[in-house]
């Protein structure tokens, strides 16, 4: 079954169209990575799926239901979660408060959920009361991912999860992503450092100039020499 289906979506900003009719399918349980040059519309697509930008044409289906143009808090309620590329934590809030915000729409106790996140990212458990703004890039990325996982989403969207991470942490983050996926969460990733990501991915898509121009399985895309030269730094 298709978890997320994008049909001919046109979107962008007031005076600039960025996506010129994107089609994309993210099957249930898979990891899909989108690669492409800067300005190709990768982040714009994520913002559009999440209701931060309104598409001017096309449809977005989540588990066969139309979610086109829903406001972000409604999208969250449907079971999608999104970790933006930068500024993805609340700096003046503590780690624990950041995670609590992830479950804002829930009522009642969050102890079990918090515990679950701290097990996934032990570093965070050790520093629950520390302000997120004082954390290093890697810890911040974990806070952001933890926040997004608080609601047990069915689809997790990650915009450049490994940007600004040290190599050992990059490896850790991708291990976690694989583990999260194992647990049944479908994952959509946008990456520049795409080699690690494509290794994990069932499917890889190439965006350029606001259109999807190529699609293949992750490893096949990684092996494709022309794609490598054009988009993965050879």
């Amino acid at each position: 079954m298709s978890r997320l289906t994008i049909e001919r979506v046109v979107s962008g900003y007031a005076d600039m169209e960025v996506l010129h009719g994107i089609d994309l399918c993210v099957p249930e349980g898979e990891i899909v990575t989108i690669i492409g040059p800067n300005g190709a519309g990768k982040s714009t697509l994520m913002k559009t799926i999440f209701g931060l930008l309104k598409p001017t044409a096309g449809r977005i289906l989540f588990d066969e239901e139309d979610i086109t143009g829903l406001s972000p808090d409604r999208v969250v309620r449907r079971g999608l979660a999104y970790v933006p590329q930068v500024e993805n934590v609340f700096p003046s809030l503590t780690i624990q408060e950041n995670l609590e915000m992830g479950a804002f729409i829930l009522k009642g106790h969050l102890r079990d959920r918090l515990q679950h996140i701290y097990e996934l990212f032990p570093v965070l458990g050790d520093r629950q009361k520390a302000r997120a703004g004082k954390m290093s890039g890697g810890e911040r990325q974990m806070v952001a991912m933890g926040r997004a996982l608080m609601l047990d989403p069915r689809l997790l969207m990650l915009d450049e999860p490994s940007a600004a991470l040290a190599p050992n942490l990059t490896a850790t983050i991708f291990e976690r992503i694989a583990a999260i996926n194992e647990a049944g969460v479908t994952i959509l990733i946008v990456e520049q450092n795409a080699k690690e990501s494509l290794k994990l991915s069932d499917r890889g898509c190439v965006f350029a100039g606001g259109l999807k121009c190529f699609e293949d399985s992750g490893p096949a895309l990684l092996a494709n020499e022309e794609i490598g030269r054009l988009y993965l730094g050879g």
């Binding site: 040059p37 800067n38 590329q85 940007a163 795409a194 988009y231 993965l232 730094g233 050879g234």
Partner: peptide, 13 residues
């Protein structure tokens, strides 16, 4: 400070 983070790898090269 991290010129490469978020920059396409071909462009980074």
């Amino acid at each position: 400070d991290e010129p490469g983070a978020g920059v396409n790898r071909t462009l980074l090269k």
